[in-house]
């Protein structure tokens, strides 16, 4: 038996009801999905919840995965879409005042002993990243958090490499303006 079967084989096995194959896929991608989620949400607990949602969704939708792209591309696409939906929900919750306490917690959870300036700096960066439009945010997160190259980012987002490059440039430029 192959110890490191390729994704395609594992996907076929999952489609035939092999849960072990899905566990192997999860082990392969959970850290990457989590990192991407962190890039959007900047909160460990929320990112883990999102990672969980992504894998449940991918398992349930596996039958509809036709294999035109790689499993990795497909799961990153699900992650990005779910993350954007989560951000919309968070915005609504913030608008309704439900996240007032949560915001405090998320700032404290990563590094409770961090000096005030560092904490403020982090908040400023989070704000700047939040202000990017969705297209720029998606490209930026996949490029920097997922470390995909421009061609791979373009494939996940179904964009041309040129458009992806332009979005990345604008994202960096906007962040520069916001942080200055």
């Amino acid at each position: 038996m192959d110890l490191f079967p390729p994704d395609k084989i594992l996907v076929d096995r999952v489609k035939n009801g092999d849960r072990e194959a899905f566990t192997t896929l999860m082990e392969r991608y959970q850290q990457k999905v989590f990192q991407t989620s962190m890039g959007f949400l900047h909160n460990q607990a929320d990112a883990e919840d999102l990672t969980q949602e992504v894998f449940i969704k991918s398992y349930k939708s596996m039958k509809s995965f036709r294999g035109e792209s790689s499993f990795g591309t497909w799961i990153y696409r699900i992650t990005v879409n779910k993350a954007i939906n989560q951000l919309r929900r968070n915005k609504l919750r913030a608008f309704a005042g439900l996240d007032a306490m949560k915001g405090e917690d998320s700032a404290a959870d990563t590094n409770a002993d961090a000096p005030l300036l560092r904490k403020e700096q982090k908040e400023q960066i989070k704000d700047a990243l939040t202000k990017l439009n969705n297209a720029q945010k998606k490209v930026f997160v996949l490029f920097y958090y997922q470390e995909l190259n421009l061609k791979e980012v373009a494939e996940v987002l179904e964009l041309s490499p040129k458009a992806t490059e332009s979005l990345l440039f604008r994202a960096r430029k906007n962040l520069q303006k916001e942080l200055d």
Binding site: Q30, Q31, Q52
Partner: peptide, 20 residues
């Protein structure tokens, strides 16, 4: 530089071993 530091800090966080 600070932005890149922030990103690499977030990237070092590991997913919970119980997530699976």
């Amino acid at each position: 530089v600070v932005l890149m530091q922030f990103i690499s800090e977030e990237k070092t966080l590991k997913v919970s071993p119980f997530l699976k």
